[in-house]
Nucleic acid binder design. Sequence first.
DNA 1: TAAAAAAAATGACAAATGTCATCCGAAATA
DNA 2: TATTTCGGATGACATTTGTCATTTTTTTTA
Lengths: 200, 200
Amino acid sequence: MIRIVIAEDQGMLRGALGSLLDFEDDLEVIAQAKNGEEAIRFIQTLKPDICLMDIEMPLMSGLEVAEELKKQGVNCKIIILTTFARPGYFERAVKADVHGYMLKDGSSDELAESIRSVMKGKREFAPELIFGSMKDENPLTKRECDVLRMVADGKTAKEISAILFLSAGTVRNYMSEIISKLQVKNRIEAISIAEEKGWI
Amino acid sequence: MIRIVIAEDQGMLRGALGSLLDFEDDLEVIAQAKNGEEAIRFIQTLKPDICLMDIEMPLMSGLEVAEELKKQGVNCKIIILTTFARPGYFERAVKADVHGYMLKDGSSDELAESIRSVMKGKREFAPELIFGSMKDENPLTKRECDVLRMVADGKTAKEISAILFLSAGTVRNYMSEIISKLQVKNRIEAISIAEEKGWI
DNA sequence: TAAAAAAAATGACAAATGTCATCCGAAATA
DNA sequence: TATTTCGGATGACATTTGTCATTTTTTTTA
């Protein structure tokens, strides 16, 4: 019996998947977490074989959970199940040694098959992740990402310079460099692209 | 037998809900649409009793579909099923005479009960929609929304002035008014709040 | 290990945004 | 119907953002 924890903040999908996967003879959903912290707690205490992990969840993202569990050497195979085919998310997931990265546009039957596959030692990555724009490398440095994230939060260059102990000119220069690297014409487009790619 | 069309771009939820609702003795899922245009087409040809309608879908949003079907006098009860408790979405849905507005954090059992309720002539609105910030009235005029939407798309004041046949000063003044009404300190926060509220 | 490249950092200047005072026409109110 | 208020619109001025040239430090490469 493959023991599964589901980590998904959206109750309807969580419940529906829980029911459908439980119908399978060889699968057992032993817990359902609605945020990242519950996910960590259930995985630590119940020690499931598999965790189906959403990414964008309250309290702690699925990627943060995966990174934390890898750091703790927890022996649970994580399959990311997300809406977003974002290179930044994918790269981070791969670095966290997840066993799968599935998109939510497949069926629950396909998901069940992927779970069985992963239990047999395979890695299940949705085919469309391997090609095209999913391989986009993040062109921004860590500092640039830090700055863009704060701009995306609505902070002014003045505020950001105070937080990072930089001059306002430096912060403006970072923004200018970001705009140039992403080949956009202003900060709003820069934020949009970086979020779509999962780089911030 | 209550005949249901499901309109949901996310395949896994669409399939899972389709299966679970079909298990109910008195419910029959007769079609599943993955975008707004399919939804319109299926509703027009199959004439279901109920349509479960997501909002954010490709080609045509669920709200646009509902508005179009109201305009055509189509006799199908629409139940909005969305992730977002946004006053702008809610107001628009109510104006389109939908029969329900449910959030995706409930269970499929609760959803089935709501469908039965709606068939008996009731309106099903998630309780949390009636209170608090869901009643926030959009403080922006139509013109201000037009301008903010284009700013959110990354357009400059210069571009917007060309598109709307206004002077750049006028566009800047609209932005300034928007920033003041929403009580934020810049356009990025203005975009954020307006999107969260479903006003743009 | 040394040289080259990249990242981090800065401030002057140009360009864009945001504020403010103002005017006109439409809509709302008395 | 007249008056008041609001929305739409404009441009001058103040403030902020974005560009550019530059320097220093760190990282990468030969």
